[in-house]
Structures are given as C-alpha cells and as structure tokens.
C-alpha cells in the first residue's frame, strides 16, 4: 500500500468535504422522480366524455402476480353509464400491501384504465386501511389515503412530495403530479 495511494485517498475525501452534498432534503424538498416511475395506481377517465375507462373485465386481476386486485363488474345503466362499454367495475379494490408495483395490470388492461402513477407516500397504520377502493384510486383523487386523512385533519391541501419532468401520456387527466 504505497504512501501515494494513501495520500490520493485523503485527497478524494477532502474534495468531497468541500463539495455540495447530494442528499435531497426530503420532505423539505420534492424528490425528483422519473416519468415511468411505478407509484400508486390511477383509474383514468376519458377526457372528452368524463366516463371511466374501466369496463370491469378483470384482466388486471388475472394478470396480477400477487393477487392484489379484486373486481366485481356490473351492468351499465343505459341512461347513466359509468363507463363506455356494457359493463363497469362496481367494486374495484387493490390491496396495496400485496401489490408489488410490477405494472402487469397496466400492461394487461385493454382500455388503458389502470395506470401506475407517481405517488409513493403510502405508509399507513392499519392493515385494513391498505385496501384501496375505487374512490381511492380514481383519477380525481389526489394523494394516498393517509395523506388525504391528514390533510382533512389539518385542514390543508394534500402536499405531494415529488416532482416529475413530465407526466407520461398514459396518465390521462392526472394534473398535479
């Protein structure tokens, strides 16, 4: 172990000492995410009609390797359709603790309804709170369940702790991310 090598090691660390740390001071600063980040799922709507894209076909549930998705379809009422097909998902639940965020559901979906968004602040306290229903997943909902709960308690809007350079086009209608 030569003295030159030891001195060079000291030089490297000294240079580090005077450079700016690379730590991102989350939560004081937002975390920069990449556009294809696998975060919380979003059930999108059609931009022109406002109807849900999900037709309750359960392909996502079939594709999910962790059996995290539960779908119960129901017939669309012709006067007040919920989705654009014959059926819609009456019950749509994803167990966030079982989900492995692989994106198979997004790839399997024929209408592009279920898409993986960017939210990662999903930590909560009780197991039962981790089963997200359709209301929790729809595109109109901003923030995860614990974030919305705390925002309601504190009477402040939900603050999302990340930023992305652009929102990928599959996430239709997602604005604040």
């Amino acid at each position: 172990m030569s003295v030159m090598a030891l001195a060079k090691a000291l030089g490297i660390t000294l240079r580090h000492f005077f450079s700016k740390p690379v730590t991102i001071p989350y939560p004081d600063a937002p975390v920069p995410l990449k556009p294809r980040f696998h975060g919380r799922h979003v059930l999108t709507r059609h931009p022109d009609t406002g109807l849900e894209k999900c037709i309750g076909c359960s392909l996502c549930a079939a594709a999910c390797p962790a059996y995290a998705i539960y779908v119960e379809p129901a017939e669309n009422d012709p006067e007040n359709p919920v989705s654009i097909g014959e059926r819609y998902a009456k019950v749509y639940e994803i167990n966030m603790l079982r989900c492995i965020f692989c994106g198979n559901c997004e790839e399997a979906c024929p209408t592009g309804a279920i898409v993986l968004g960017y939210e990662f602040e999903l930590a909560d306290y009780r197991y039962s709170d981790f089963v997200y229903t359709k209301e929790d997943l729809l595109v109109d909902t901003v923030g995860s369940k614990p974030q919305r709960r705390e925002a309601k308690e504190r009477k402040k809007p939900v603050k999302l702790g990340f930023e992305v350079p652009y929102v990928r086009p599959e996430l239709e209608g997602v604005k604040y991310e």
Binding site: T13, L14, H16, F17, P21, V22, T23, P25
Partner: peptide, 11 residues
C-alpha cells in the same frame, strides 16, 4: 463523516 461522504449528517 457525512460531509466526507458527500451527504448531510443528522440535521
């Protein structure tokens, strides 16, 4: 040690 490792320490 944190500054030598280009990170923040406890703050």
């Amino acid at each position: 040690l944190a500054r030598f490792q280009i990170r923040l320490g406890p703050n």
